[in-house]
C-alpha cells in the first residue's frame, strides 16, 4: 500500500517538475545529492540483498527486485524530466543568442551602408 502512495506521489512530483522554471545552481546541487543517494542505495542493495527484501516488504512490495525496478522507473522518469527542462532552457538561450547575433549583424550592415 505504501508503495502505491510513493509511486503515484513520485509520478505527480515529476509532472509538477515539468511545469516549473528551473533554478540552475540549486538544482544542480540537488541533482548531485540525489545521484549520490541512488549510488549509495545501489551499493547497499548489492551488499545486503536480504535487507533490500525487508525494505520492500515494509513498503508493501513482495520482492527486493521488484522494488529495484520501481525505483529504476522513478529515477528514469525524473532524469527524463530534468533533461527535458535543461534542453528547453538551453533552446531558449540559444534563440536569444542567435537573435542577438542577427541583430548585431544588421546593425553593422546599416553602418556600412551609411
Amino acid at each position: 500500500m505504501i508503495i502505491k502512495l510513493l509511486l503515484v506521489g513520485g509520478a505527480l512530483g515529476a509532472a509538477i517538475l515539468i511545469l516549473r522554471e528551473q533554478f540552475p545552481g540549486q538544482r544542480q546541487a540537488r541533482r548531485r545529492i540525489a545521484g549520490l543517494a541512488v549510488l549509495a542505495a545501489g551499493a547497499f542493495a548489492v551488499i545486503w540483498p536480504e535487507a533490500l527484501t525487508h525494505v520492500a516488504n515494509a513498503v508493501g512490495v513482495g520482492r527486493g527486485t521488484d522494488l529495484v525496478l520501481y525505483v529504476l522507473v522513478m529515477v528514469f522518469l525524473f532524469t527524463t524530466v530534468a533533461t527535458y527542462q535543461r534542453l528547453h532552457h538551453m533552446e531558449s538561450r540559444i534563440a536569444t543568442l542567435a537573435r542577438e547575433l542577427a541583430l548585431r549583424d544588421a546593425e553593422a550592415q546599416d553602418r556600412t551602408n551609411e
Partner: peptide, 14 residues
C-alpha cells in the same frame, strides 16, 4: 530586402 540572418534554424516564432 534587408536580411537578418539566424546562424541556425530556430523556428518561425523566433
Amino acid at each position: 530586402a534587408i536580411v537578418l540572418h539566424h546562424p541556425i534554424n530556430l523556428g518561425q516564432g523566433a
